[in-house]
């Protein structure tokens, strides 16, 4: 929406290059995230999930497209709108949903919740509830990659709301100074809580916000998973080659409220409906797959598979016991 001039590192990131197999994978992942989030919303409504719960519905193509360009060992960190990132990173839907319900079987044994979840195994570093804090931490993950001499990349997700935090720019400066292999993914879903990006940012082209530090900026349609992946390919290659950080702004949209309790007064229903109807990232992939000749039945089979996975996760999240009271006192310090 906000590209004032032609963006791009090499200009080729809108190419449509996904194979049928890749596109099916993307479809499955995106449907998984959407169904998972809908179910989370339902469990929240039933009182089984408490506190804050920020859903990723509408933004699925962003994390799925980027994840397809990552390899084992690449590190990921994000904000509190984190369920999509976790599922895309390969974390177990059961463990994620059981953390949402605050149960023993959750990734943090119920001690983290929706906003604070981690997986050492999948190199997922949270899940952070302080807006913008994950950006400084994210360059630290990239710093560690460089310090150890690996070619691993760190993907640091944040929203256009966080992009007004001072530490984001401190992090740009440090990442550029040290040429850190950090891909900043600015998920512009157009609203920081109820404040539209136009009312919050004087900058009209957020992808250019790293320019003072020489950080290459890219801009991509986040409702198009193929475009996101192509942009990620270019950006990740840049980071992996030791050329320093990249800022990738992804234009996306959140269908649901900021969290579960949202007055929905700051935008018109017609705006949401219009995007949901005409720009939905899953519908788009579906159309593309059908155009490739994939049978409707095959997609339906995937839908059923996802449904089974999500139903199983929801059931696990409700039957897993609450954490033992002794958990209150564990994991505060490493006992030496």
């Amino acid at each position: 929406m906000s590209n004032e001039t032609d963006p791009g590192l090499g200009g080729g990131h809108n190419s449509r290059a996904m194979t049928e197999a890749d596109l099916k994978h993307a479809y499955y992942q995106m449907v998984l995230i959407r169904r998972f989030e809908e179910r989370s919303g339902q469990l929240y409504g039933m009182g089984l999930i408490g506190g804050f719960c920020h859903l990723y519905i509408g933004q699925e193509a962003v994390v799925v497209g980027i994840q397809m360009e990552l390899k084992q060992g690449d590190k990921i960190i994000t904000s509190y709108r984190d369920h999509g990132q976790m599922l895309a990173a390969g974390m177990d839907p059961r463990g994620v949903m059981a953390e949402l319900t605050g149960r023993e079987g959750g990734y943090s044994h119920g001690k983290g919740g929706s906003m604070h979840m981690f997986s050492s195994e999948k190199h997922f570093y949270g899940g952070h509830g302080i807006v913008g804090a994950q950006v400084s931490l994210g360059i630290g993950l990239a710093f560690a990659n460089k310090y150890r001499g690996t070619d691993e990349v760190s993907v640091t997700y944040y929203g256009e709301g966080a992009s007004n935090q001072g530490q984001v720019y401190e992090s740009f400066n440090l990442a550029a100074l040290h040429r850190l292999p950090c891909l900043f993914v600015l998920e512009n879903n157009r609203y920081g809580m109820g404040t539209s990006v136009e009312r919050a940012s004087a900058s009209k082209a957020l992808w250019r916000n790293g320019e003072p530090w020489g950080i290459p900026g890219m801009y991509v349609d986040g409702m198009d998973v193929q475009a996101v992946r192509a942009a990620a390919a270019e950006a990740v290659a840049h980071c992996r080659a030791g050329k320093g950080p990249v800022l990738l702004e992804v234009d996306t949209y959140r269908y649901r409220g900021h969290s579960m309790s949202d007055p929905a007064k700051y935008r018109q229903r017609s705006e949401v409906d219009e995007i949901r109807k005409n720009q939905d990232p899953i519908d788009r992939v579906r159309r593309e797959l059908l155009a490739m000749g994939v049978e409707e039945n095959e997609l339906k089979a995937m839908d059923e598979q996802v449904k089974a996975v999500v139903t199983d996760a929801a059931s696990f999240a409700q039957t897993s016991p609450e954490p033992d009271p002794s958990e209150l006192w564990t994991d505060i310090l490493v006992e030496s």
């Binding site: 360059i139 630290g140 710093f143 401190e170 400066n173 440090l174």
Partner: peptide, 26 residues
């Protein structure tokens, strides 16, 4: 200079960066 690192005056940034590095085991 790999092990002894000057930073700009940017406490929140370099503290967050160091914590991120520590979370990976450094």
């Amino acid at each position: 200079e790999k092990r002894v690192i000057d930073t700009p005056i940017t406490e929140q940034g370099f503290t967050g960066m160091a914590i991120g590095a520590a979370l990976t085991g450094l």
